[in-house]
Design a protein around this nucleic acid. Sequence first.
DNA 1: ACGAGAACTTGATAGTGTCAAGTCGTGGTG
DNA 2: CACCACGACTTGACACTATCAAGTTCTCGT
Lengths: 184, 184
Amino acid sequence: MAAAVRYIAKNGPDGLSFRQIAADAGVSHQAPYHHFGDRSAIFSEIALDGFRKFTEVMSAPSCRDEDTDLAVRLCERYVDFAITNKGYFRVMFRADLCHMDESPDTQKAADAAFETLLVAVQEILGDTASVDDIRVQATAMWSTAHGLATLLIDGPLERKIGKVSNRRALVRAVAQRMVDGVTS
Amino acid sequence: MAAAVRYIAKNGPDGLSFRQIAADAGVSHQAPYHHFGDRSAIFSEIALDGFRKFTEVMSAPSCRDEDTDLAVRLCERYVDFAITNKGYFRVMFRADLCHMDESPDTQKAADAAFETLLVAVQEILGDTASVDDIRVQATAMWSTAHGLATLLIDGPLERKIGKVSNRRALVRAVAQRMVDGVTS
DNA sequence: ACGAGAACTTGATAGTGTCAAGTCGTGGTG
DNA sequence: CACCACGACTTGACACTATCAAGTTCTCGT
């Protein structure tokens, strides 16, 4: 399974061959099939691990005691996680690969991850915010972070804005824009 | 090829079988291979069409004469396009499917699409904006729109924020938040 | 000691992308 | 009019894949 994550980080999840990773691990072509009943099961398992790592990273304490805006830090964390954990991230949001409906554990882990985001937004907005407001803000933040992450990992962003000499700076600048508002 | 786009819109691009769409079209399993030399070639072709449609939609005149914020309208357009053209959108940003380096036409179409975004941002910011600022803003807007679109299409968003009774309203609210700034 | 079950194996089947040759009709040129 | 080159398509074959169905081996608790 570690081999699978490595492979995905390098080549993406689509060309992944059950048989190939079995061969690499030095076992027969049917060994993996014994542990994960199904090709999609291994993806579900990877996604499960991924969401757990993700929740862990996003709610880590050091996320809460710097002096930059919390929203900015969350966004940075999100993108950081995606890039340093390509192998997981690429799978986590591919509903076609890991069928959530067949693996409730993964579903729960994903829900938990989203929950941390909602909590954080609530913290940012304070008690006065309405439920609708929290949802909208959470969606906005999530969209920006997710979009930025996917565009950086697989997307054409790097090509378009010119070789990013300092990725961290870009991410921070974009996150700050998100907080302050575009067109300000 | 139209059949392929339909299939992708319904089932996603990964399960797509060259042989299957050939059979559906009532020809032999090798007929498509004759027109597109390669499996990835058909995806490149779809992406090419997609980017052209996309540029067309994003730069349509009616985008410029309403009275809501231009940035909001662009974001709405982006998401709208993605949802009504799933079959194209799902392929356009999958570098693993359509190898840009092998089909310069698609590459150019993608570049052109991004160019319209840069122009729009320049228009929004006015002449005083620095090149760096334009890049950051464009990236921020693109990220938000792209993230929202992908989360809506394949992602878990709908599940998370509850059945979206009115998708358009959500998209507009999120876009407005993007413009005004999160945590305002 | 032994038997149940886990970890793994070998073998077979159906479906896939791709290569390599055909076949067939149609249009243009001598 | 004969001819033939070429594009659209077909058939056949190959290597690879996921998956099903049975073995085999080895370990561990009773």
